[in-house]
Structure formats: C-alpha cells, structure tokens
Amino acid sequence: MTRIRITVTINGAVVERAVDPRMLLSDFIRHEARLTGTHVGCEHGVCGSCTVQVDGSPVRSCLLFAVQVDGREVRTVEALAAERDGALHPLQEAFHAEQGLQCGFCTPGFLMSVEPVLDRVEEMDDAQIRALISGNLCRCTGYEGIVCAVREAARKMASPSRSRPGGAS
C-alpha cells in the first residue's frame, strides 16, 4: 500500500512521517513519535487507556488512523508536566495525593479525558465525575481514589481563577 506523508503537531512539536494508511494513531504516537506515555490496552475502543486530545477533544487514539490527524494538533500525557517545566499538573498531583492509581497503566487515559473539563467547570459532583470517566477502565483502584482525585483537582483549579478572574493561575 502506498505510504502517505503526514505532518502532525504532537505536544507542540511537528512530527512528519510517511505512514501506511492502516497505522493507528496510538501506534504512530508510540512508535513514530516515540512517546510511550500513551498506553495501548484493548485496541478496540473499550478501555480508554489510549485516550489523547485531538484539537482539544479527548478521543481514543486506537480508533483513529494516523492519516486522519494530518495537519492537526495532538496532545498526550507527556504535555501535562512538560508545559510546567517538569512540575506535575494539579490533576497529576491530585491522583498522587488521593491514591488514584496503583499500577498506573490506565492513568494517562484518565488524565487526558479529565484535563480539558477542569478548565471548563468550577466543581463537579460525583455523578458528573463518574460520567466523565465512564469511558476509562481501571482494574486496580475500584475508582474511589480516582473520583476523589478528580474532585480535588477540580476544586483546587477552580479556586485561584475564581478569586482573580482573568489573573494568572
């Protein structure tokens, strides 16, 4: 099959490659861009481990072909700390503090699913949090720690911008 040349911005860096049309975005991120924070679990859209953001929206990277993101912006879990000079994102801090992970395999998917919502809402009740993370499976924690972590992160990220609207957070 003819390879197709694509240009994708991943975490702000331009990645240009010629790829087989059948290459999944998840494989492109891991094997071509060499960013292995995005984990591949089920490869059929059930587990949510491979969730990344494409043009700001969380999507499953195992259900997109790399050719489909030609010219678009992809954001992976590596961006969270990289954008803060290596310091953890408040959501990552909260997962750590609230024991929202055990083995950590599913964590990148949870983080990328939840993170864009934290910028939009002030606080979330548990039902909203559970609906938000319903597309991500965790086989270790039983979810309580994850729900606590999301609730805490939403609370922490809401407070500075609330007191100083438009100010730096």
Binding site: G45, G48, T51, S57, P58, V59, R60, L63, L64, S113, A131, L132, S134, G135, N136
Partner: peptide, 9 residues
C-alpha cells in the same frame, strides 16, 4: 451514547 470520548469522535 457510549462515553464522552466516543461522542467527541
């Protein structure tokens, strides 16, 4: 329908 990530795509 599905989950938020599914509905985005």
């Amino acid at each position: 329908v599905g989950h938020p990530q599914i509905r985005n795509a």
